[in-house]
């Protein structure tokens, strides 16, 4: 039991007082939270609330205004971390004029991983039959899965996924969430954002975000209990009304 608690306490990411200003606007307004390894943490909030900026900060490609982001005990973005983090941006960041297999082979070379990982990643996102097709001719969902496959290549210890399930077929969405949990079960920390509240229950832990502030940080059940609501959508509304009253 003690070991389990110890394991649960182990943080992959620690964010403190994080403020990010972009184009004169404060996008993140002093955020603090931790992400534990071996779990799937969801970041839920409406589009434009700062989710992508927060994810960019974790990966270390965002200029910070103040505060700190530590990943595995090091400042986010240091070169030692680059091979340990898998990152999928919201836009599909693979080469449209290459096939799925060519894209993965290229990124595998950059990461220095073997060719076996290419087939393994293609299999994990269920693109085997499209492996030799040019990415530009695939459907939107297939393209975003190709982008996801790149992030799986390096068997990352921290997987940061910006809206990976948008526009996907429900069966596939279920399979991907299963995959995220499998990856977490191997000890990695998985951090997934979504603007769809019904994905909340697929996460071990939730961060609810609105207008650059985290308004709740708990398990899905914990959030429902605290707000005395039945679903996360109502919980979100109730939390927004509460903070509105406080202001």
């Amino acid at each position: 039991m003690v070991r389990i608690i110890h394991r649960m306490m182990k943080n992959s990411v620690e964010v403190r007082d994080l403020v990010v200003r972009r184009g004169g606007r404060e996008v993140l307004k002093g955020i603090g939270f931790t992400i534990e390894e071996g779990s799937v943490t969801g970041l839920l909030g409406p589009s434009g609330c700062g989710k992508s900026t927060l994810m960019r900060a974790l990966v270390g490609v965002q200029q910070l205004t103040s505060g700190s982001v530590q990943v595995f005990g090091e400042e986010a973005g240091t070169s030692a971390l680059r091979s340990r983090i898998g990152y999928v941006t919201q836009e599909v960041s693979v080469y449209d004029d290459l096939t799925v297999a060519e894209n993965l082979t290229f990124f595998a070379k950059v990461l220095g991983v073997s060719g076996d990982k290419v087939d393994e990643s293609i299999g994990a996102v269920d693109l085997q039959s499209q492996a030799d097709q040019v990415v530009g001719r695939l459907s939107g969902g297939q393209r975003s899965r190709a982008s996801l496959a790149v992030a799986l290549l390096g068997s990352p210890d921290l997987l940061v996924l910006d809206e990976p399930t948008v526009g996907l077929d429900p069966v596939l969405r279920r399979d991907l969430w299963k995959l995220f949990h499998q990856i977490a079960a191997r000890g990695a920390a998985v951090f997934v954002s979504s603007h769809v509240m019904d994905e909340a229950d697929r996460c071990d832990r939730l961060l609810l975000m609105r207008e650059g502030v985290i308004i709740a940080d708990d398990t899905p059940d914990g959030i429902r209990e605290k707000t005395r609501t039945d679903d996360i959508e109502s919980a979100f509304l109730s939390l927004v009304e509460d903070t509105g009253d406080a202001a």
């Binding site: 490609v61 680059r82 091979s83 990152y87 599909v92 080469y95 990461l111």
Partner: peptide
């Protein structure tokens, strides 16, 4: 603009 550069620079490149 496609995000591939950002992805590459977040990798050990």
């Amino acid at each position: 603009s496609s995000g591939t550069l950002e992805r590459l620079l977040a990798m050990p490149m």
